[in-house]
Write a protein that binds this DNA or RNA. Sequence first.
DNA 1: GATGAATGAGCGTTCATTCAT
DNA 2: TATGAATGAACGCTCATTCAT
Lengths: 195, 195, 195, 195
Amino acid sequence: MPPTQQRAVERRTHIIATAVDVVAEVGYHQASFAKIVERGGLSSPRLISYHFTNREALMTEALAYVVEQAQAHMHPRIAAAMTVQEKLAAYILGNLDFLETNPTCAIAAVQIVANLPRAEGDQTQGDTSVRLLEQLFTDGQAAGEMRHFDNRVMAVTLRAAIDAAATGIDRANLAHHAEELVEIFRLATTVEVQS
Amino acid sequence: MPPTQQRAVERRTHIIATAVDVVAEVGYHQASFAKIVERGGLSSPRLISYHFTNREALMTEALAYVVEQAQAHMHPRIAAAMTVQEKLAAYILGNLDFLETNPTCAIAAVQIVANLPRAEGDQTQGDTSVRLLEQLFTDGQAAGEMRHFDNRVMAVTLRAAIDAAATGIDRANLAHHAEELVEIFRLATTVEVQS
Amino acid sequence: MPPTQQRAVERRTHIIATAVDVVAEVGYHQASFAKIVERGGLSSPRLISYHFTNREALMTEALAYVVEQAQAHMHPRIAAAMTVQEKLAAYILGNLDFLETNPTCAIAAVQIVANLPRAEGDQTQGDTSVRLLEQLFTDGQAAGEMRHFDNRVMAVTLRAAIDAAATGIDRANLAHHAEELVEIFRLATTVEVQS
Amino acid sequence: MPPTQQRAVERRTHIIATAVDVVAEVGYHQASFAKIVERGGLSSPRLISYHFTNREALMTEALAYVVEQAQAHMHPRIAAAMTVQEKLAAYILGNLDFLETNPTCAIAAVQIVANLPRAEGDQTQGDTSVRLLEQLFTDGQAAGEMRHFDNRVMAVTLRAAIDAAATGIDRANLAHHAEELVEIFRLATTVEVQS
DNA sequence: GATGAATGAGCGTTCATTCAT
DNA sequence: TATGAATGAACGCTCATTCAT
């Protein structure tokens, strides 16, 4: 399918997309060059080594590729929401909708994030999306829309809940799963009603 | 430490315990026989092959070993609780307490559950602990202590929340993390207050 | 030739001896496992990996093997010499005689010494044989048999002269070469005659 | 630094000079096109293949480049010497002075000479510089300045002694090393004093 | 019960080089 | 003149497993 002497950027994209597929299917460490070659109809593993410095670089780029797509898919929805609670709901729904639309992307992302070796002084106590959620909760508390809880714990919990939906097997009914999650985290975050 | 011609059962236990350590440290797929041999001071990978039919069998037994320990650690606490809500809190607190006491066991369990290939007709819609939680929620709803929600989604979410604590980095403050989780899932499950 | 399930020590020796041959023939870095396998009639490169931790370990052992043989060949001759000058001559003659008898050993030794990566804090300013020569010259000067020169420079020069004979192509006439070297270093080291 | 569409000769020189650096640093066989490309800021290994028919041709040209520089550095000094013994001293001092001034050039030269595969019917019994030394010794013997010894052995020995200084580690004190070598080979070559 | 010896398959990576502009 | 793209072969090494005691 891919003709010889293809433009490099197309080749790179093709390889990355194939890598995402393979990672989603067999997992991070099992996604060998050989499997990517087979799946992508490439001529040799050397082609991957040619376009990417090493395996880790390929995976890093694959993650960036997926994140970019997810952002594009989710951002408008979240930005359109007025209240923080609505943003939270939009985040959950957008995430699981993306997961339904691009299951391989989502699964691959979870795999790569979980396994990509962190740089030395990485210091990231939690990846980007967790920190983004922490900020959202801070905003919600400042706006009086949310009760006071440990933002980090809540953020980690929500991320885990979403990732579990991605890894889970009942991918048939993701819309329902999303609705349930929205309700769970609405109840968990709203200011408590006075008796 | 392990003398030659040891009793078989001790050998098995020694290998399993070592495997748990290694899995916790380097992950499921990276826990090779060679690493277990080195860590456990064994003479050769052949010893593992001798006691376990294959790698998967070893991992399955390792999981059983860990689950058994976790059960022993958590069960009394849960059984002592009177209401379902108390049982739920006891489950969360017990889990994270076990995680604090036996971090390697807990991490290894998560790793193995996440990676152990399922048998062909396995059909397990979720592993044992998820199904146990589903039952707990059913009881809570029957007793009128909990609102009506999708038991499976809630169970998967709680399991993911706990596992995330295991994998997470702020293992320093697990007691606090536990308290926060208890509150989150209390709010998410209680019957809603009427205005 | 080599039967299966051979005793390990024999296998190791066979591999080492083959490695020495190959290194002597094609050089340190070109002596690949594959070439050793072919030359030694081994079943697979895996056999080498099985018996030696890594390539460097194999080469280190190969060097030790050669050095041991050289020692056994040269030591009696040197020990028998009475004066330091006689010891020096015995060293040169013994070296080149060993070189004539075991050319591959000698060439391989030079190759390995020149290319074996040194350990971190190795600190060896010069390998063992150079330091042995330095001591010999110190003795000679103390005994009044040798003039005062820089021992290290003389030692390095002599080692290089011998190694050059090993690498050289006129291996036909090594005995003559040896005689000439003896004379060169006798003249270079003896106390100068007063006019 | 090198702009595109550079004049070909400059490109060639740039590549050769870079190759010399890399060979000096990592050795002949480890000096890969990739490393030269990186060190020299070239765009692709293809550039080297374009300018040189193959790796061996590049190395041959690199050697010629270095030899030319060494000649330019050493020749005046030797030519200025009156007696053969003075020429010999000038040769040694000039060599080690060049080595001190252009260490990479000297080291690279030793590496290439030692590893460059000889052409089929090459028959060179020793490279150019050795034959030059043989001639010098012949002259010295004809002039009665030198005793009778095997010219070839002496030449090979001197070359090895100088090369060892290049490879050695005490590059700090090359001037002293040079003086010692001069003395060694003066004593080794002069006509013997009658008692 | 236990182990030393051996193995085929696979891994990511590097090599100098050729193809196609 | 110059270069991006691609490649087959080889590299040392690790894998879980089987053979033979």
